[in-house]
Simulated scan of single mutants.
Amino acid sequence: MLLNSKIISLVALTGIIGVLVGGGVVRVCFKDSSTPTDIPQAPSEIIKADLVSTWELAQQNDLYSLEKLADTYETGECVEQNLPRALTYRKKAANLGSAESAYLVGYSYERGIGIKKNGVKAEKYYWQAAKKGHPKAQYSLALHSSGLDEDGNDPFSPSLKFNISKEKALSLLKKSADQNYSLAEHMLAGFYSEQKKYDEAILFYEKAAKHGKTDKWGLEKAKNGKMNQAINIENPSTEILEEFDDGNIEYKWKVLLTNTADTLWNGSVTFKLLDINGKTIDEAVEFDISIPAKGNITVEGARFILKEKFDSKTKININVEYSK
């Protein structure tokens, strides 16, 4: 009987030891593997700002946390402002697929914010964002396109240039404008106005104004251009009325103007005589001309000029300028 009790006790003790050992094994197997053991200590400013969890997640390439730290260091909110460090986090976020971060990295390289200016890298990151549909990046590429800079002497033209064709730049600009980005809409309106495509220009000037970029002068210029296009200039001619002994002549000029628009046209008419080289030798302006909608009028005037300037090689140029 005593022997049986010892055997039972031994079996019980063995079972307890087995449970303890087994429990130890279980605890090792189910250790929280989501918390890495090789994360370094967070910087002191991160600890003070209570951003340790965000910082730790950023070390694991969590996109949201990387961008949050970039914002924090960029604005100087809760921590001392550190633009180079903000850019480091931005680059990591950009490389993980963030279009916004890629755009901001490109902007930093363009403007030299927290890093030395670098046009090549600016273009690289702008393209990275633009390919993901980022409207500001698309606009930035078009803005700096060498293809759209038809006047290299324009003082307002950006000094930084990307080797992007006119066709590609316009495609980018339209994609940005399609997302209601006002600067792209405004730039597109200006481009169409220069091309004398006034309907398109007016459309995008009005869209840009709706989205925060107002250009009343540009809009009025486009509307005036559209009205001037509505005027057909027909049968311009000159006629010598009288010759004088002092070498002068009096001549009459006239032109038929037809208004194809549905509204009244008010403006001025400039009549020029040009020599064979296109140089103006005489000019006359008639103001306060009104042409009814779908109507026409003949505008004429008399001028004095040296007879020697008036010969068979004289050319005629007529210009109309709409005004309200």
Rank of each mutant, 00 (worst) to 15 (best):
V269M: 12
E286T: 14
E243W: 00
K196C: 09
K254R: 11
G295R: 10
A284N: 13
T238Q: 08
A261D: 01
I231H: 00
T270R: 14
K226F: 00
K197E: 05
D262G: 09
T263L: 08
T270M: 14
Q229V: 12
T298E: 08
R303Y: 03
D275L: 02
T258N: 04
S268D: 15
E286F: 10
L219P: 00
H211E: 15
A293Q: 04
K197Q: 15
S237I: 05
F287S: 13
P292Y: 06
W265Y: 09
E194L: 14
E234N: 10
V269H: 06
N259M: 01
P292F: 03
N277V: 08
I297M: 12
E220R: 12
V299G: 08
M227P: 10
G278I: 03
A222C: 02
G295E: 06
I240R: 01
K213H: 15
K197P: 01
L256S: 13
W253Y: 06
I297F: 09
E200M: 13
N235T: 07
N277H: 02
K210F: 06
A208L: 04
K213D: 15
I249N: 02
I291E: 02
N259T: 00
K254S: 11
K252A: 10
D245Q: 15
N248E: 14
L274W: 06
N266Y: 11
S237T: 12
F304R: 15
K207N: 15
A284I: 06
G301S: 10
K226Q: 14
Y192N: 05
A261H: 01
M227H: 10
V269G: 12
E243C: 02
E300V: 07
E234W: 02
V255S: 11
L306H: 13
K226V: 00
A222M: 03
V269N: 12
S268Y: 02
S268R: 13
L241I: 15
F304M: 14
L257S: 08
G267I: 10
I297K: 13
L256T: 13
F271Y: 15
Q195C: 07
K216T: 10
V269E: 04
L203C: 05
S237R: 13
Y205Q: 08
D215R: 04
I276R: 12
V285N: 08
E206F: 07
D246H: 06
Y198I: 04
G247Y: 05
M227C: 06
N248P: 04
A284H: 10
A208I: 07
D215T: 05
V269P: 11
Y251T: 09
L264F: 01
E194W: 05
T298Q: 09
W265S: 04
I233G: 00
P236T: 00
E194I: 14
L273I: 11
Y251P: 11
F191E: 11
T270E: 12
I281W: 05
S268I: 12
E239T: 13
L306W: 09
I291K: 04
V269I: 15
E206P: 13
Y198L: 02
A201Y: 10
D245Y: 03
A302T: 15
T258H: 02
M227K: 14
T214P: 11
N228A: 08
